[in-house]
Nucleic acid binder design. Sequence first.
DNA 1: GTGGTCTAGACCACC
DNA 2: GTGGTCTAGACCACT
Lengths: 125, 125, 125, 125
Amino acid sequence: MSSQLSVAVDLTDPTPAYEQLRRQFALLIETGQLIRGDRLPPLRQLARDLGLAVGTVGRAYQELEAAGLVLTRRGGGTTVQVPAVDAVATTRAHLRAAATAYAKQVAALGLSQDDAVNALEKAWR
Amino acid sequence: MSSQLSVAVDLTDPTPAYEQLRRQFALLIETGQLIRGDRLPPLRQLARDLGLAVGTVGRAYQELEAAGLVLTRRGGGTTVQVPAVDAVATTRAHLRAAATAYAKQVAALGLSQDDAVNALEKAWR
Amino acid sequence: MSSQLSVAVDLTDPTPAYEQLRRQFALLIETGQLIRGDRLPPLRQLARDLGLAVGTVGRAYQELEAAGLVLTRRGGGTTVQVPAVDAVATTRAHLRAAATAYAKQVAALGLSQDDAVNALEKAWR
Amino acid sequence: MSSQLSVAVDLTDPTPAYEQLRRQFALLIETGQLIRGDRLPPLRQLARDLGLAVGTVGRAYQELEAAGLVLTRRGGGTTVQVPAVDAVATTRAHLRAAATAYAKQVAALGLSQDDAVNALEKAWR
DNA sequence: GTGGTCTAGACCACC
DNA sequence: GTGGTCTAGACCACT
């Protein structure tokens, strides 16, 4: 049985696995894709699905809790806590940041906006 | 005295410092901004400028040499070795990687290709 | 309907909930505030009042019974069993423990016995 | 060779070991007993001295860093960071809290201020 | 030699 | 079944 959430870790990425997880869940919560009361996958199930040690996933969950995004109760699983966040605004901010970063990279290669759009359309598939 | 090249390391980035350096020099060389015979900054000067230990910069230079991009001679500094790179192909590869990364980020936000293109066009200005 | 006894659990305290309960009842019994024949609150009522699972309160009661402080009879509730405790000695032991803990805390602050006494006198009011 | 600092963990205390360590260092820093630039004992040395696993001490150090009390540089040890804190006020606050807690405990035992002071004087030795 | 990350597995508290 | 803590040891990045 696999977890239903689209989280993944890239072991070739130098970013620590627990940090990759933390970010992805934080993003899902901040953008409203996970809302108050939703449950995160059980620690051990997610660890098994991703091929990680339990403690590694555990650290991600701990940090989410420390950030107040999640509430964890012994024996009761981990549920989204999140107070009132403006999901739309947050999503827009993330989108803008990503677009800007991409634009800068393309410009640094000496290419045009058209090149950027074309490459994006090819990459989308 | 500072090095003339625009290289920098971000210590908050989990990517190892030597790897950040290696990548930047490799990109400069592959895109023809550094050509055969050009000298890399002296190890110790660059280390001082960036606030790194000499060994850290040394490791970046070593790996560049191992990759054949650079040649280090005792007392002679480190000079760019490789002339034969297909700058166009390299640029295209970088473009593709950046586009793919951007597409993934937008998809993770639950947004569409149109959103991605629109944001890109706004970011371009 | 609430239990009449002033017992409480602090979930932010790392001490297990069942252990917090056990201690409080043990203290009430040892200091004579609960005497032979007195009834402890019904398990389920106390669990409800404190927001705990029934099993958690059950474990506290079990340990009290194992210690011989209490007797549980099916359908008959849980009643205080033990009469023969030296209340004075128990009280003295608790006092000693509290004083030692306080002395250690003050010493860890790098302060003197005089500081400890002064603060205590102010706190007493 | 043992660490010079008076930190200790009580394994009978239900408080997690890493949390006991975190608190003690935080107290030493907040009360000015460790000041900016002072070094914490090396992770592995402290772990050995206390009979703990390296990761356990590591977690305490991590949390101190997350709280901004300490700065840790790979290969460079862990040093006190602490911005401007009013050490005297902090110490006084801790003292007041400890004294109040002690006073409450003694009062709950039905004893007098004199009893509290006497016990304190005996405990101090 | 200094921290940081990860693993594999054990035991505990709680629902 | 759910998380939380701890161990023992490995490998990596950096000074």
